[in-house]
Amino acid sequence: MTARSQRILFWALVWFCILILSVPTIIVVGASFTTANMISFPPEGFTLKWYEKIALARDLQQAFIRSLIVSTVCLIVSVPVGTLAGLALSRFKLRFANAIQIYLLLPFTVPLIGSGIGMMLIFGEWRVLGSLWPVGVALAVINLPFIIWSVSSSAGALDGDLELAASSCGAGRFETFWFVTVPGVMPGIITGGLLMFVLAMSEFLVSLLLTDARTVTLPVQIYNNIRSIITPDLAAVSSVFVVIALLAVWLLDRLVGLEIFLKSK
């Protein structure tokens, strides 16, 4: 159906995209197995010693645990808040709905450096800077539109008559919400929650602004180490993120199917 020249041109561009998107990842994972003390590619020999080294490194372990805590806080905050907001936007007629949408898109339109520094000043004033939970809350703020989006689009696909049917069968308002609405938008909640968790796990700039030497999370730790010296153990740490990303993609595909992102509204 498509012309030959179009196929060749488009596929050439697509292959270029595939190359620039995946080669860095492959290189990082490959470099983590090198026996040399400096990063080299193709890797010399094969060894797992760098993984042994990072498994024993206390600072990296702690940074990893902190990242997990931060992402969990982000998840706990963002899932209820985002779900309710997504439902409100798609199921209720709100006055000033347009203004609310613009307001709720602020986390995306305000530059991350601006939101990060603003929240740093606020948390500093509240004297909570230096604990981990504010980082999780801040990450929930900056990524909130993601979960609102995914919940509201799956609420848009839910038939409103189902809720009416439930209440005419005698379900109370809470039962209707809990047994009809929430399961109905569950794909959106799961997708949004997964996005929030993984994006919080790998988020860098806001974490850099809100953490100090005692509370660095893993991405910040990697950044700090890169600035001093590039060694293969860093490639091994980075491979941890590759594994997390693989898991997330696999889960997302199993739970809702990646193709859902191709659907038009």
Binding site: V14, C17, I18, L21, S22, V23, P24, T25, I27, V28, A31, I39, F41, V198, L199, M201, S202, E203, F204, P219, I222, Y223, I226, I230, L234, A235, S238, F241, V242, I244, A245, L246, A248, V249, L252, D253, L258, E259, F261, L262
Partner: peptide, 23 residues
């Protein structure tokens, strides 16, 4: 194509920049 797209999206900016540094 979707997997190739989503992997870097989840890997995060620092690690991706690190890969580019090596390359």
């Amino acid at each position: 194509l979707l997997v190739v797209l989503f992997l870097p999206f989840f890997i995060g900016q620092v690690v991706r920049a690190y890969g580019l540094l090596i390359i």
